[in-house]
């Protein structure tokens, strides 16, 4: 249902970026103002989101425990899946954030005749998600070469690693291929799997297609059409030093790439993409399961109406006496 509108929206954005690159009067606006504004919205928006989450307290300590608790010393405690200390939590969070530990557990349930329920390993989602996020990070870091002079050593090292096999000229970066394949898989899965398609919203397709547009325009520029790298670098350095220039040699395709990135940045804080900072705050993952060892305080813990022993004794006095049970108040 939502696929087409999302596709059309992204295509319109591509067209807008391209047009802006061709219309002299718009070049500065789209090449400098929009990107800078987008970065501001991104940073401000993320800060606002995180602060808003942080403003709501964590009244109860509710980790989801995924292994043996720490109780009796001779029982093997699952330090990472059911951490009892801050270090354990750190380990658990690192596994979640860096390796997508929970997604790794994924299985597929199938009902066979009998009836017989079968749960099989289903690692493709995990693999695609991990591949996408890690490649995105690498691609992002590689882009620092446009923004920094001299190019930091780690960026060069990363670049060498990424282009390890020295295939083609310009050298093929693996991250670029992997990110494209991963995104296509994620999109195909959303369309293919009837359940996932059923729950998908416009924003789910839009985010994927926006990223696909961003990645493809990048790949297009690197491998298929020539863009003036010097001009691009001038533009990039201008942006990061807040003294933007938009050289005439910057081609419209760069504008497409830049505009899609701007939209992504500005959209990020207002969409599900906030899962990126959000995962760090998830109370089922980032709290130690030391509930009975250390008291957790709820800042809004208020007094409630209870049924005290005295009231209870009063109400059931006759029966307590008849049963021969002790009374507090004779």
């Amino acid at each position: 249902m939502h696929v087409l509108p999302a596709l059309i929206t992204v295509l319109l954005l591509v067209a807008a970026g391209y047009a802006a690159g061709r219309i002299e009067a718009l070049r500065f606006f789209f090449g400098a103002v929009v990107p800078l504004a987008a970065v501001a919205v991104f940073l401000g928006g993320i800060a606002w989101r995180v602060l808003r989450w942080a403003a709501s307290p964590v009244p109860f300590r509710i980790p989801t425990t995924c292994g043996q608790q720490r109780s009796l010393p001779w029982l093997k405690h699952a330090r990472l899946d059911n951490p009892a200390t801050g270090w354990g939590v750190l380990g658990r969070m690192a596994l979640e954030v860096l390796l997508f530990r929970s997604l790794f557990r994924n299985t597929k349930a199938e009902l066979h005749a009998g009836p017989k329920l079968v749960y099989s390993e289903e690692k493709w989602l995990w693999l695609a998600a991990l591949a996408f996020h890690w490649s995105f990070l690498i691609v992002f870091l590689r882009h620092l070469r446009f923004f920094m002079e001299p190019v930091p050593a780690f960026v060069l090292a990363l670049q060498n690693l990424d282009g390890f096999f020295q295939i083609g000229a310009p050298v093929l970066y693996w991250s670029g291929v992997i990110i494209l394949v991963a995104l296509l898989y994620l999109l195909a899965r959303r369309l293919w799997d009837p359940q996932i398609r059923y729950v998908s919203l416009f924003t789910d397709y839009f985010a994927l297609m926006l990223l696909l547009g961003l990645v493809s325009s990048g790949l297009l520029m690197r491998y298929f059409t020539k863009v003036d790298i010097v001009a691009v670098k001038q533009l990039a350095v201008g942006l990061i030093t807040l003294s933007p220039v938009v050289p005439a040699a910057v081609s419209p395709l760069v504008f497409v790439h830049l505009f899609l990135l701007s939209v992504l940045l500005a959209y990020f804080p207002f969409s599900k993409l906030v899962h990126m900072p959000g995962v760090f705050l998830s109370p089922t993952r980032n709290l130690a399961n030391n509930n009975r060892a250390r008291r957790h305080v709820n800042p809004w813990n208020y007094p409630v109406k209870v049924h005290t022993y005295e009231e209870w004794e009063e109400e059931f006095r006759d029966k307590i006496v008849a049963a021969g049970l002790p009374l507090d108040k004779e």
């Binding site: 989450w53 996932i196 959000g278 109370p283």
Partner: peptide, 17 residues
Amino acid sequence: KFRSFRLFMDICVRCGA
């Protein structure tokens, strides 16, 4: 009152896992 609530309303990506 509940960070869990606000967060869980915001961050689901509908991955279907």
